[in-house]
Computed example of a mutant assay.
Amino acid sequence: MEIAKRLTLELRNRKASEVKEMVLDNCRSDDGKITGLTSEFENLEFLSMININLLSLANLPKLGKLRKLELSDNRISGGLEVLAERTPNLTNLNLSGNKIKDINTLEPLKKLPHLMSLDLFNCEVTMLNNYRESVFELLPQLTYLDGFDADEQEAPDSDPEDLDENGEEGDDDEDEGEEDEEELDEDEDEDGVDDEEDIEEEEGEEEEDDDEDVPQGEKRKRDLEDEGEEDDFEEEDDEDDE
């Protein structure tokens, strides 16, 4: 399927300005170039163009809000200056499986101040001596290269944008969870007291209900029988006394 046709299907009667994510993986590019994608996709934040036989980024439109760009398994060998010009807020860039052979090809990425994560798996450049040290030196704004930071610490599963200033995941949700547990405990204690009182009331109501369920004649008969038994016990006690 061609990129232009795929774009039409992905839109689903929406306006281009309403789309924030676009996946064009495995489409056919036109002579190795991007077609159909325009600057009307002004609110696009995530764009994936994996394995579309892409040779050049020359036709990439201006996408000022784009943060994540997936370009793996294409045939890009250069021309990365386009990214700095048209995607100035890019934070994550995946160029795995492309034809990038030397460090100098990456130099235009210096103009992407927010770039935090860069993937170059299966690119020839990764075979160079001191590859990692050279890339981190060239791109000081970079936090993760091929999924690891400069100290060989693996990137967390969460999005780098969700990390705090210390590079750790925020604990807001955890704190909220603890507060919720405390509130639940307090509610359980209060409910426990109320439940005991409710049980006593329910037992009393059940006894009353039992009497109410007995027909009036039967109830009186039972009362008379109970009184008769009491009189028998009193007569026996009198005889014993004599």
Rank of each mutant, 00 (worst) to 15 (best):
M1F: 05
M1P: 10
E2V: 03
I3T: 08
K5H: 09
L7R: 04
T8R: 04
E10T: 04
N13D: 14
A16T: 13
G32I: 06
I34W: 03
I34L: 04
T38Y: 02
E42T: 13
E42Y: 00
S48D: 06
S48A: 12
N51K: 05
N53R: 06
L55W: 00
L55S: 02
L57N: 02
A58I: 03
A58H: 02
N59G: 02
L63T: 10
K68A: 10
L71D: 13
S72A: 08
D73R: 14
R75P: 01
S77H: 09
G79M: 04
L80M: 05
V82K: 11
V82T: 13
L83W: 09
L83C: 05
L83A: 05
A84V: 03
R86H: 10
T87K: 07
N89A: 15
G97A: 11
N98Q: 14
I103E: 15
H114D: 15
L115H: 11
L115K: 14
S117I: 08
S117V: 13
M127H: 13
L128V: 11
N129F: 08
N129D: 15
R132Y: 05
L142K: 06
L142S: 06
T143E: 13
T143N: 12
D157Q: 14
D162L: 07
N166G: 00
G167T: 08
G170E: 12
D171Y: 09
D171P: 03
E174T: 09
E179I: 05
D180A: 08
E190M: 04
E190P: 02
D191I: 05
D191C: 02
E196C: 02
I199N: 01
E206Y: 02
D213H: 07
E218K: 07
K219C: 02
R222A: 15
D223P: 01
L224M: 07
E227Y: 06
E230K: 12
D231G: 08
D232L: 09
E236C: 01
D238H: 00
D238R: 00
D241C: 00
